[in-house]
Simulated assay, not measured.
Amino acid sequence: MNILPKKNWHVRTKKNIERVRRDEEQAAEEEKERQRRIALAESEARTDLLRQRAKHRQRDDDEEYEGDRQVVEFQARQHVNFFSDIEQGMKQKKVNEEHEKEKKEEKEKWEKSIGLLTYLGQSSVESKTTKPGIYRYSEPPKKKSKEEENMEEDMKRKHSLDPLHKMKEYVEKKKKHKHKDKHKVRQ
């Protein structure tokens, strides 16, 4: 007895399917309206920000023009000393940190390669990146990942099911068979 389609809560009744479709359409419309409002608010905010910057820049340009005239007049009366900040000890010698770091890494790499630099508890063989001779067998062989194994299996399967490959095998067998027959006839 199949009474499930008669239940009003059943998922596949026409009434419930129509209700779900309506709800999805309504949700899509609401999302579209929400995105439109967000875009509108962002564009208005951007426009306001640009207007404020333009007004602020206009005021700064006006003030800067007046200030430049005063600075030029003040400097014309004074002696120009380009090294005043160094004389006063304001500026300190700066080093290029990136360059120093690169030099340190290069030196460390060179020392490791010649065997000079080893860390505490580390043998000279362990410090080298490539292990000589017998030490390469101290590590277990690398296992293939599941993806590599699956790819190999797929390639084998494709190779075995390939009709061109089967035809080539057949042609080779036929050539060998003909070659054997010709060889037997000549003897």
Rank of each mutant, 00 (worst) to 15 (best):
M155T: 06
M1W: 11
F74N: 07
H179Q: 15
E97F: 08
R136G: 02
S145V: 00
R12S: 12
S113Y: 04
N81L: 05
E169Y: 03
E108W: 04
K176S: 09
K93D: 04
R59Y: 11
H10Q: 13
R77M: 09
E105M: 14
S160R: 14
K173P: 01
T129S: 13
G133D: 03
E66W: 05
I114H: 07
F82L: 15
K182P: 01
K168S: 08
G89R: 00
K104E: 09
D181L: 13
D85P: 01
I17S: 12
I3V: 11
I86P: 03
E106S: 08
H10M: 10
P5Q: 04
D23K: 10
W110A: 14
D68F: 12
S123W: 01
K94A: 11
V171G: 01
E30W: 11
K176H: 10
E97L: 14
R77E: 08
R21Y: 10
W9A: 11
E42K: 11
T118H: 04
D62W: 14
H79Q: 15
V20D: 08
R69N: 09
S127N: 08
Q75F: 15
T130L: 15
K91R: 12
D68L: 13
T118C: 09
Q58V: 12
K175G: 03
R59M: 10
D162E: 00
A27N: 07
H179V: 10
A76H: 11
V20Q: 05
A45H: 03
M151E: 10
K184L: 10
R59G: 04
N2W: 03
A27W: 09
K146G: 03
I17Q: 15
E100F: 07
E111G: 02
E44S: 09
V171E: 04
E148F: 02
L161E: 05
I17W: 01
V95G: 03
W110D: 07
L40G: 05
Q78S: 05
D85H: 07
K158A: 06
H177R: 10
G89L: 00
G89E: 00
V80K: 12
K107I: 09
K112R: 15
L117E: 02
S145A: 00
H10W: 15
K174N: 07
A39T: 04
Q88H: 14
Q26S: 12
S123K: 02
L120K: 13
L50A: 06
Q26V: 14
Q92H: 06
S84W: 10
G67P: 06
G121W: 00
Q88E: 12
Y170K: 14
H183F: 15
A39S: 04
N2Q: 07
Q26N: 10
R36Q: 07
E97V: 09
L116V: 11
A54M: 09
R157D: 05
S145P: 00
K107G: 01
E106M: 07
E25N: 07
K101E: 08
R34T: 00
A54V: 09
K144D: 01
S84V: 11
R57K: 14
R46G: 06
E153T: 08
K55M: 12
E100G: 08
E102V: 04
K173Y: 04
V20R: 07
G67F: 15
D85Q: 05
W9V: 11
I38F: 04
E64C: 12
T130A: 15
P141W: 06
V80Y: 15
K93H: 11
I114C: 04
S124C: 10
E97C: 02
K173D: 10
